[in-house]
């Protein structure tokens, strides 16, 4: 184990943020809070990717014509990946929220346990 954990502080923060979002996804009963947890996980990934592309003392990758030294600019590839991630996260959030609206209209609750309970009661009645 190398001791790079001190030099990679933004990545450490991203991992801890990921853990917070993941525990929120597991522990929250409310569906909206679960979606918020998923979004926190997404944000952690953006932070991780942005930290991967960072170069010390470098500026944003707006390169004037004729520039030759790539070390003066941050890496553009992770920035493009973050863009992709944002689009996918927005789309997934929209679809999840639409599903949540539908579930609330059907069961009148956002509690996942309550929804499962109501489904089980319905199943038992259907078997009888």
């Amino acid at each position: 184990m190398n001791n790079y954990i001190v030099t990679n502080l933004p990545e450490v923060a991203a991992i801890i943020l990921f853990g917070i979002g993941f525990s929120n996804l597991l522990l929250a009963r409310n569906l909206i809070k679960k979606i918020i947890g998923l979004n926190i996980m997404d944000t952690a990934i953006y932070l991780f990717l942005a930290a991967k592309g960072y170069v010390d003392n470098a500026v944003a990758p707006i390169v004037p014509p004729g520039a030759v030294d790539p070390d003066l600019y941050v890496n553009p590839v992770p920035s493009g990946l973050v863009l992709t991630g944002i689009v996918v996260s927005v789309s997934v959030t929209a679809v999840l929220l639409a599903l949540t609206v539908r579930l609330y209209e059907e069961f009148n609750t956002l509690d996942i346990d309550e929804i499962v309970h109501q489904l089980r009661v319905k199943d038992k009645e259907a078997i009888r």
Partner: peptide, 20 residues
Amino acid sequence: ILLYTVSELPVMGDALHPAN
């Protein structure tokens, strides 16, 4: 587990980082 992996990653901000 993820923090262990981060501790093995190369130093952040290095211009010679394998990602660059």
